[in-house]
Measured scan of single mutants.
Amino acid sequence: AVTGSQTALLLRAFEKDRFPGIAAREELARETGLPESRIQIWFQNRR
């Protein structure tokens, strides 16, 4: 499950760019500790 702090970080990124590229998703994966594929799905679901 995604924690509150991970969600906050993802929401901030989403406000800046609703369609992040692979580099941005990989950076978010490093920052959150989540797999990049999970980040991609999160953005798809959020849109």
Rank of each mutant, 00 (worst) to 15 (best):
43 F>I: 01
2 V>E: 09
45 N>E: 14
37 S>C: 14
4 G>Y: 13
28 L>T: 01
10 L>P: 00
6 Q>H: 06
21 G>F: 03
7 T>P: 02
36 E>H: 07
17 D>M: 06
24 A>T: 08
46 R>F: 09
25 R>I: 15
29 A>F: 02
2 V>D: 05
9 L>E: 03
20 P>F: 03
5 S>I: 12
17 D>C: 15
42 W>E: 01
20 P>C: 03
23 A>G: 09
3 T>D: 08
20 P>Q: 01
25 R>N: 02
10 L>Q: 00
2 V>A: 06
25 R>V: 15
38 R>I: 15
41 I>S: 10
26 E>G: 06
29 A>S: 14
17 D>G: 05
10 L>I: 01
39 I>G: 01
37 S>D: 11
43 F>S: 00
31 E>V: 10
47 R>I: 07
43 F>M: 02
19 F>I: 04
3 T>F: 07
47 R>L: 09
42 W>F: 03
14 F>N: 01
6 Q>C: 12
37 S>F: 08
5 S>R: 13
19 F>W: 10
41 I>Y: 09
28 L>I: 05
16 K>C: 03
17 D>N: 13
46 R>L: 07
1 A>D: 14
40 Q>D: 14
1 A>R: 11
35 P>N: 09
3 T>E: 05
7 T>A: 10
8 A>I: 14
30 R>E: 06
21 G>N: 12
41 I>T: 07
20 P>M: 03
2 V>K: 04
22 I>C: 11
37 S>N: 08
11 L>I: 12
44 Q>R: 11
26 E>S: 07
30 R>G: 04
7 T>Y: 15
37 S>M: 11
23 A>M: 10
47 R>Y: 06
4 G>H: 14
15 E>Y: 08
18 R>N: 10
27 E>L: 15
39 I>D: 02
31 E>S: 08
29 A>E: 04
29 A>K: 03
10 L>N: 00
42 W>D: 00
19 F>L: 04
28 L>N: 00
15 E>D: 15
14 F>G: 01
20 P>D: 01
11 L>C: 12
33 G>M: 04
21 G>K: 07
14 F>P: 01
23 A>Y: 08
9 L>W: 07
17 D>T: 05
34 L>M: 07
30 R>S: 05
7 T>L: 15
14 F>W: 11
46 R>A: 11
32 T>S: 05
43 F>N: 01
42 W>T: 01
5 S>N: 13
2 V>S: 04
9 L>P: 03
35 P>C: 14
1 A>Y: 14
9 L>M: 11
13 A>G: 03
40 Q>A: 15
40 Q>E: 13
16 K>N: 10
19 F>V: 04
5 S>K: 13
32 T>M: 05
29 A>P: 00
33 G>C: 02
9 L>T: 09
10 L>D: 02
18 R>P: 15
32 T>K: 00
18 R>Q: 13
34 L>T: 00
22 I>A: 11
30 R>K: 14
4 G>L: 14
39 I>M: 01
19 F>G: 02
45 N>Y: 10
27 E>D: 12
12 R>T: 06
20 P>S: 02
26 E>V: 12
15 E>P: 00
7 T>W: 14
22 I>F: 12
44 Q>S: 09
39 I>N: 01
28 L>R: 00
10 L>F: 01
27 E>M: 08
43 F>V: 01
8 A>G: 05
35 P>V: 05
24 A>Y: 06
2 V>T: 06
25 R>Q: 06
14 F>D: 00
22 I>N: 10
24 A>E: 11
40 Q>R: 15
9 L>F: 11
18 R>G: 04
42 W>A: 01
18 R>Y: 04
47 R>N: 12
43 F>T: 00
32 T>E: 02
43 F>R: 00
47 R>A: 06
39 I>W: 01
30 R>L: 09
2 V>Q: 12
24 A>N: 04
40 Q>M: 11
5 S>V: 11
26 E>D: 06
14 F>Q: 02
20 P>E: 01
38 R>L: 15
47 R>C: 06
31 E>H: 08
31 E>C: 07
45 N>A: 11
14 F>K: 02
29 A>D: 00
15 E>V: 10
28 L>K: 00
37 S>Y: 12
17 D>I: 03
28 L>Q: 00
39 I>S: 01
38 R>F: 15
33 G>A: 04
8 A>M: 13
43 F>Y: 04
32 T>C: 06
34 L>E: 01
6 Q>D: 04
32 T>H: 00
15 E>N: 11
15 E>I: 10
1 A>W: 12
9 L>K: 06
16 K>I: 10
12 R>Q: 11
